[in-house]
Amino acid sequence: MIPISIQIKQALTKLILPLLFIMAILIMIIGQAKPKLIEDVRLKVVDFLLPVYVIVEKPCDMLNKFFQNFHDVRNIMKENKKLKHENKELKGWYHVALGLAEENVELKKQLHWIPDSRITYITAHIVADGSGIYHKAVLVVLQSGHNVHVGEIALSGFGLVGRVTETGDRSARILLINDPVSRVPVNLTNSHVQAIMAGDNTSYPKLIFYPEDKPPIEGEKVLTDNKGNAFPAEIPIGYVHYLDPRHPIVVPYTSLDRLRIVRIFNFKNNEINPPDAPGRINLTNKKTKTKPVASPALLGHN
């Protein structure tokens, strides 16, 4: 212990609060100037806390399941009737699908079809909520040495939910599609128009930038578009709904508030790079233009 006089001790205790204020402001400035540094610290903390999250989450999950079971038992009769009916219908569809699959294989064989390369994905458990009051994100737990990169996309069982924005050693953060900064190019299936789906911190992202004369149709399917190569095309997201006549929104197929498991797809691996000079055929007998088009020599005004 360093011997300090009482006066200095008192002065130090008075100084500590202003000092901490300055530190807080410094952290704010660092966060703006060097966001990468803060992200690294963040993911370190999250990685460190992951076991705690898993421990806390387990009993809550069990409790959730218990209540779900209780609910299921109560509705068992109704559910059974519905399922039987559905099963009958699905059996019909199953035979249709089998037939179609066979036919598809046959047709592809005749066409020398080049099969799509297989897409790899991993399935991850959501353990923590990385969102605050002004943004929406989730944290997933991964194994160390994972192969998840920033920019990969996360799907639930039914459709798109978000994109990976940061990866740590054992965790990754997924920005959900309803975050205020999320912008996803989308395709609407019935009206055949393109639009942007913009998150606004509510559960339902809104649609913007659709053509004025062709507004989205209530209930139509919303798929991703590969504009800008951010997303692969044709991934289902949800359907269009109008909260009021002027504001179309997208209702995602999975509720974004109740996500538990996501699949992270690696689409970047089989990204298609177009060859150089798209759409131009090099004709050997044609004079190559080396001069600017508007030069008088080329236009014949010598």
């Binding site: 963040r42 943004h135 994100a137």
Partner: peptide, 8 residues
Amino acid sequence: LLNFSPPG
């Protein structure tokens, strides 16, 4: 750090 908001 946990909420991924602007730090500070």
